[in-house]
Computed example of a mutant assay.
Amino acid sequence: MALRYIPMPDDDAERLRGSGLDAYGNHPEQRISDGAGVPCRHCLSNVDRGKPYLVLAYRPFTSVQAYAETGPIFLHADECPAHDGQSLPPILASSKEYLLRGYGSDDRIVYGTGGVVGVESLTERAEELLARADVAYVHVRSAKYNCYQCRIEIS
């Protein structure tokens, strides 16, 4: 099974870098990276030390509904290429564990799919979840803060 690691869409990244508002209707805050723990959700790489980045509220769903979680994320302030989707994103090697959660085609959490896994088991667990008929995609989230990292689908 080939997995695709889906970054924030180009349209969202461009809008937020421009004058666009985040999921809470605020302008993103600009900061300077210290080089540690600042994962961009568009290129799925860490923002280098000394480079500007944005902090904003993001909702990785197409509609507002009970399961459409919103939370803080980081984004390069300057344009960056979207992750290619084919390789394991660099940001997923920066922690020892992640929360994986399966969602149905209706964008609702599939109960019983959520759990924290070690980074060495991330791909295997994503494949297990995506093999289920009731799981359309998987979210990878921070195990400590529940921050959205990326979406995983079958290629």
Rank of each mutant, 00 (worst) to 15 (best):
A131S: 15
K96G: 11
E79K: 13
V135K: 03
N146L: 14
G114I: 01
D48K: 14
H42D: 03
P81Y: 11
E29V: 09
I109P: 05
S94V: 04
A57T: 04
G18F: 04
G50K: 12
E120T: 11
V110I: 15
R59N: 07
D106V: 09
E29Q: 13
N26D: 15
Y103Q: 01
C150E: 01
L21I: 11
Y137G: 00
P89L: 01
A57W: 12
R151T: 15
A36N: 11
P89H: 00
L88G: 02
P72A: 12
G118C: 08
S142H: 06
D106T: 13
Q65V: 08
A143K: 03
T70L: 05
P28T: 08
L92P: 06
V116S: 09
S33E: 11
P60R: 04
A66N: 10
E153S: 07
E127Y: 02
E124H: 12
L21Q: 13
P9Y: 05
I91R: 00
S142W: 01
Y58G: 02
R59Y: 10
Q30M: 14
K144W: 01
E79Q: 14
V138I: 10
R101G: 00
Y137W: 13
P89G: 01
Q30C: 13
N26Q: 14
L16G: 03
K144I: 03
Y67W: 15
G20R: 03
D34C: 09
I152M: 06
T123W: 00
R132C: 13
G115S: 10
Y145F: 14
E97F: 05
V119N: 04
Y67S: 15
R59Q: 14
S105N: 09
G35I: 05
P9N: 06
